[in-house]
Each structure stands twice: as structure tokens, then as C-alpha cells.
Amino acid sequence: MPAASRGPLIVAHRGFSARCRENSPAAWQAAHACGADAVETDIRWTRDGVAVCFHDVDLMRLTGMSDRIAETDSAVLDEIALAGAAIAPRFDDFLATLPPSVQLVLDIKDERPSSLERLLPMLAGIPAARLVLGLHRAETVAALRDATAARILGFFDDPDHEDTFLERGGDVFRLWEQHATPERIARIAAKGLPVWVMCGGDGTGRAVGDIDGEGMRRLGAAGAAGLLVNDPEAARIAVRPNAAKKEMVS
């Protein structure tokens, strides 16, 4: 990934989801085109064991349909379109959309043992250096640590749970913006864990992933190593204004 001297990594949350439908090929393409350092997507498995990119347990929020991803066959999901693309694109579509140079951040939403058994074979052909696996449970981190060389990102609810995460072999710790005080960032970073901040969300007055330019600059100054954002283009301009100007001139 880019050097820390460039400032925090800009991670496109569900792709360029401020401009395009979240977790869609258009969102992934737009994120890459605007210069995001990494593209994040959510991973779930269908009833017939196909990995798809979808955040929620069911389709209700985006379509009004109550179908649950884990109880629906992939062929059925392929036929449900929204904004010109399948509602839950397959993971293979995610890989095909982005060039091999792009860093991939996978939020593993389903951590049941049966689902984790499918995960590693699915990732076998992808260079580990390209992957960051977002995991939510300490036991999952421990279970996968010896099985993959990919970096593990801790999506833990407790902002002070870094010791448990570190003991299990985690590599990067996520904080919600409301918890990302300079003191906490410094404490976690001092233990050897880079801190990525999920912008927006509770306590900020903004939706998850939405940004505030001045707030992002403060997070960067406090030592945040990465920022998960819905608008990677605006985020890059906010934290790397000089770089953005040079690219516009060129």
C-alpha cells in the first residue's frame, strides 16, 4: 500500500458509494478511477455456497424485499437488478472489475464455521499482499491467523479491545470515528497496530462512511493510518490537497 508519508490510506467503503449504488461494479470502477488506495466490499454466501458482495442480511433496505442472502440461491439473486446491475454481484465480479494492482478489503459478514470453510479456497488464487480481511470476532481471527498471510483488520465493537485482537494475531484495528480520539489512536498505534477509522456513524451526525474534511485532517494528524469513506475522491482532496492539485494539472 502507499507510503504513510502520503497521509492516511483512502479506503472506498462499498466502492464509491457516495456516487454509485453500493457494492456494485460501477462503484468499484469509480473508486479505482478516482485514485482510492483500496476498495472495500462485504462478503456473504448464498444458499448454494456462492460468495456475493452485499452488506445486509436481507434485501429489505435496498429493494423492499425480505429475501435473506443466506437463504437464496445465487441464480435467483443474479436476476434481481438494481441500478443496472445484479443486486448482489458475485465475488468473481468484484475481482474481474478491478485490476490486479488494486488493494482489496473484504468485510466478512458471515463468520459461521461452515462459511469460513469456503473462504480460504475462494482466496487461494489472490496474492496475500493484495488482501485485507475484515473480521468481527476474536475467535475468527485466531482461527484464520495461521491459515492466511493476508492482513487481518479487526472490526471489533469494543474500541478498547485491541489487546485481545493483537493476541489473536490481528494486523490493523478499526475504530469508529466517534471513538477515534488522538489518545486512543496513539495508544493502539504504540502497540504496533495501525488504526483505520470508519468515518461517520453514530456520534458524528453523519451517515456511516460520510466525511467531514476538517475532521479527516484531524484524524490524519492524530495518526490514523487509513480512512474508510463513501466518497474517496473528496477524501483524497481533503487529506492530500497538494497531491490532488498536481494530478489535476498533469
Rank of each mutant, 00 (worst) to 15 (best):
A26K: 12
I152D: 02
R61M: 08
R68K: 13
P8H: 06
D171Y: 12
C20M: 07
A238V: 12
D92T: 12
K246N: 10
E183D: 14
G213R: 01
S250L: 13
T148F: 01
L106T: 08
I152Y: 04
C53E: 04
R206G: 06
F54H: 10
A36F: 05
M198G: 10
I43A: 02
G192H: 03
D202H: 14
L62G: 10
I80T: 13
R137K: 06
V102T: 12
S24W: 01
L166H: 04
A33V: 06
R145E: 00
A207Q: 14
A129P: 00
I69C: 09
I185M: 02
P8D: 08
G170Y: 04
D157W: 05
N242S: 11
A33S: 08
L82C: 11
P232T: 00
P159S: 08
E183H: 09
E111V: 05
C53F: 04
F155S: 13
D107I: 10
A36T: 12
P2M: 15
I211A: 10
L166I: 04
T97D: 05
N242V: 11
N230M: 02
T97F: 03
D107Y: 13
E139N: 13
S115E: 15
G223D: 07
V50R: 12
S114N: 01
F91A: 00
R168S: 14
G170T: 04
L133C: 15
A30N: 00
E177Y: 01
W28A: 01
A81R: 10
M60F: 12
E183Y: 00
R187M: 11
A124D: 11
I69T: 05
D146T: 13
S17D: 07
C34L: 02
A142T: 15
G209S: 04
G200A: 13
W45N: 01
A221M: 09
A96D: 14
L133H: 15
E247I: 09
W45I: 03
D158R: 02
M1C: 07
G170L: 06
L133F: 14
P194G: 02
G223T: 05
R47S: 13
V229I: 08
R174F: 09
R218L: 15
T204V: 07
I80W: 05
A86K: 05
A147L: 07
P113E: 14
P127F: 10
H32C: 08
G205N: 12
V105S: 03
D210W: 00
H136L: 08
A221R: 10
V141L: 12
R240C: 08
I43P: 03
T164N: 03
E162L: 04
F155C: 13
R236D: 02
L62D: 12
I185F: 01
L59M: 08
A81F: 04
A96P: 06
A222D: 11
A149F: 03
H161W: 14
F155H: 13
V197N: 12
F156D: 07
E139Y: 03
A186C: 07
A12Y: 00
A244T: 04
S101H: 15
R240W: 06
D160P: 00
V208H: 05
L59P: 08
R44E: 07
L228F: 01
A238D: 10
G154K: 09
A186N: 06
I43M: 07
E111S: 04
D48F: 08
L144S: 12
D78A: 15
R137N: 05
G15Y: 00
I152C: 04
R236L: 15
A33D: 14
S101I: 11
E162D: 15
